[in-house]
Design a protein around this nucleic acid. Structure first.
Lengths: 254, 254
DNA sequence: CGGAGGTTTGAAAAGAGTCAAAGGTCGTGG
DNA sequence: CCACGACCTTTGACTCTTTTCAAACCTCCG
């Protein structure tokens, strides 16, 4: 697992079935297009986008979509699965800055310098649409709704990051975990999944890293929330989330 | 001080001298244009931008440039002074998510929802150029370098936010303050000011808020860094910064 | 020159981290 | 199909960094 090579086999496979994958990749026919960059585009605009977004990449659990320092040429739109986004301090300490799921865009931070400034690692077998950025920008110059959508995704990312800063800076450990769970529940809900019951894709250590806590603290907090009837946790399977109760404990950051 | 009214007098004054202010406001003649959104634009592009950016707003120390919930219609480019950007938890706890100085864009987070999601408050008497976002977007559709610059500023903001998350999530109190000081020094340097000596525009409480610490901890850390010869702090006047020494203590996040 | 706001320092408390140990789970290879 | 090992989770005991509370001092603005 962990940082293995970058899927040469997968990439070959993709190349060998280009026509089929190409068909699948059309934004205009994508079932999550209303969650993703194409949100709100009309048919003509979608067709333009279809010309830009032509391939997908499969990334197996534990493998890397891109690494810090990789040259930036494309954004990725998560289609299936979950990625964690991580940055590093010089001494190697790692901070997870986000968990991205279907419809989310990853790679936005690479635009500013032309190099990726974070790692994107799959937490489960995942698939992302490859969006060459130059092409995207070009279409955005003629298709105003796409331009707006791109601006909104960039801006939304800033807003999300600020919420995490608030959590890291001002909330107690319990508040952070409660906010995290409510946030996950809401995102599942937005994607048509159950919000009161789901399987975590990340370990206690990864949750702790994201929230600025240790894995032991996270584990203890799960035990406490369970004792107090706010959820049932069986490893990564979370059930019977009491969303209102958790919101009360979250400093309503979510 | 603090949250007083929104400068009706200032706005009147601005209106009464439109022609002069208009002249001053041209990006093409602005002395910080290479730090700001116009970076790298040619003369023709600058002239286009001049048509969009036509006014400035003065904001006195302690006053508000915009508030959470205000409708978003424009970005602001800081020309003179410093702003703190704050967000709120539901219970009123506040987190400062950034300090923005000349050349920085503020308001980017408002694009996604059409409402500002943070407050921007002047830490000293300041001035910001008003950039109507629709107009900016329209020009960006024909002027590719401006489009790229806008994308880069949005992306840069994401990268900065991630650095703060790393600090809040993984660094010790001392490392956070060291990283903060090095970051300030570098930004001063980029603006042509001394990097080893400057006046802080924010209180100990504001530094602590930004770094997820209490004001007492920040004060103790300044005393410690001074004892150990890494700087001299006389209130907000900081002198003789030992940048290399501080970088070593900062987990090199900066 | 009065007072509000800001800073420093100390002492005690608390929240989260560290270290340690044991049990659980999952996937793979034999 | 089972067993093994790697990884993950839980819980306890103790530690330590940072917070909280308190008091005194500074300083700058009106």
């Amino acid at each position: 697992m962990a940082d293995s090579a970058r899927l040469p086999r997968e990439e070959q496979r993709a190349a060998s079935v280009v026509s089929i994958r190409d068909l699948q990749t059309r934004c205009s026919r994508c079932d999550i297009r209303e969650l993703c960059l194409p949100v709100g585009l009309d048919d003509a605009a979608l067709r333009q986008l279809d010309h830009v977004v032509r391939t997908r990449r499969r990334v197996k659990r534990g493998e890397v979509l891109y690494r810090i320092g990789d040259s930036f040429a494309e954004l990725f739109a998560v289609r299936v699965g979950t990625f964690k986004i991580t940055i590093l301090a010089s001494d190697g300490r790692e901070q997870i800055t986000g968990y991205q799921m279907s419809g989310d865009l990853v790679g936005l931070d690479g635009i500013s310098t032309g190099r990726h400034q974070c790692n994107a690692i799959a937490l489960e077998d995942s698939e992302a649409c490859v969006m060459p950025f130059d092409g995207l920008a070009e279409v955005a110059r003629t298709v105003a709704p796409l331009q707006l959508s791109l601006h909104r995704f960039l801006s939304r990312e800033i807003g999300r990051d600020q919420q995490l800063m608030l959590a890291l800076g001002r909330l107690s450990a319990e508040e952070r975990l409660a906010a995290f769970l409510v946030n996950l529940a809401e995102r599942h809900h937005a994607r048509g999944f159950a919000s009161r019951e789901f399987v975590l894709r990340m370990t206690r250590a990864e949750i702790g890293n994201y929230l600025g806590l240790t894995l032991e603290t996270v584990s203890r907090l799960f035990s406490r929330l369970q004792r107090e009837g706010l959820l049932q946790a069986d490893g990564r399977l979370i059930r019977n989330l009491d969303l209102e109760g958790l919101r009360k404990r979250a400093g309503r950051t979510c």
